[in-house]
Simulated assay, not measured.
Amino acid sequence: MAAPVHVPDLTGLALLVAIARTGNLGTAAHELGLSVQAATARVRSVEQLVGTPVLERGRRGRRSSRLTPRGVLLVEWAGPVLDAAHDLDAAVATLRPPDDGTDAVVLAAGPTAAESLLPGWLVELRDGPGGRITLLDTADPAAAVRDGDAVVGIVETGGPLDGLHATTVASDTLVLVVPPGHPLAGGPGIDGAGLAGTPLVSRRPEAGSRPVLDAALRDAAGDSPVAAPIRELAADAAVRAAVRGGDGPAVLPRMVVAADIATGLLLEVPVHGVELTREFRAVWQQGTSPQGTARDLLRIATGGRIR
């Protein structure tokens, strides 16, 4: 997927939204910590990128603080982009060590939980009780909690977890997706053995949902070999893009591809006779009761079941 070439930077979009709200270029510039001259330059840059004026011109051609009809339209379109960037900022903050002297609760999670679940929880935490979370990215969150390196962990493994309290916070199903026009699209589906023999675009070994998929394919294949992947990529977003580009089918978490399926960019192929469900559990040390931000995070993750 090529990088967008007509999208203004976030500051330029935020400036337009502020102008729409305040009705004044100078006031909007002040809110964003810009001089009027810098704000005017940002507006000029936006207009060059989109190819149309976004602020009306007054006498002598000077920009006013009134949005043109197309400027209004751009502001409306920019809203979801700025909301998404604001939410991303909350997630990225967990990657940074605390630098303001405040204590942060350490959350241990593997890549899948961090990618799929953590952003939504962090936004709800930010917009609700507040608090700082630092992410410990590890393949064994349970061990990190047992060792005291993290207060809360999110695990994907089934079975008992010695020395830990555990509660289910989410479950998801892996689905086989193909682009429109693929030979599997619109058909009756495929069984487990057939899926095991189908080359897929996949995550790298041990990354994301790949371990769950590999275990299911080995069970379905029996004594037959499992087909080697067409490509192995670093992130679900890259796998989705490869499938949309026609590189091949993929098995991905439904929560990752739901929007693509809803819009028809990807099509789901029924899979029969193989279990592709995974469960996420929050864990913390036995004999302890998480407090403060840790408790708030667990309350969000469990939908209020932890109180």
Rank of each mutant, 00 (worst) to 15 (best):
G12K: 02
G12D: 06
A14E: 10
L15R: 04
L15A: 09
A18L: 07
A20L: 05
T22A: 11
T22M: 06
G23L: 09
N24G: 07
L25D: 04
L25W: 02
G26S: 15
G26L: 12
A28H: 02
A28R: 00
A29V: 04
H30S: 13
E31K: 02
E31M: 05
L32N: 01
L32M: 09
L32T: 02
G33C: 12
G33I: 10
G33H: 11
L34T: 03
L34P: 00
L34M: 09
S35A: 12
S35P: 08
V36K: 11
Q37Y: 10
A38L: 10
A38S: 14
A39L: 06
A39S: 04
A39P: 01
A39F: 03
A39Y: 01
R42P: 01
V43M: 04
R44G: 13
R44T: 15
R44A: 15
R44Y: 11
S45K: 10
E47I: 08
Q48T: 09
L49Y: 05
L49V: 12
V50H: 03
G51W: 01
T52D: 11
T52G: 00
P53D: 05
L55N: 00
E56W: 00
E56T: 05
E56M: 06
R57P: 03
R59A: 14
R59C: 05
R59N: 08
R60E: 13
R60A: 14
G61F: 11
G61I: 09
G61N: 13
G61L: 14
G61D: 11
R66H: 11
T68N: 07
T68H: 02
P69A: 08
G71P: 00
G71K: 00
L73W: 11
L73C: 06
L73G: 07
L74Y: 00
V75Y: 03
E76Q: 14
E76S: 13
E76P: 04
W77S: 06
G79L: 15
A85V: 13
H86F: 08
D87C: 08
D87R: 15
D89R: 14
D89K: 09
V92F: 07
A93N: 06
A93R: 08
T94R: 09
T94K: 07
T94A: 08
T94D: 07
L95S: 01
L95P: 00
P97A: 10
D100K: 03
D100P: 01
G101H: 12
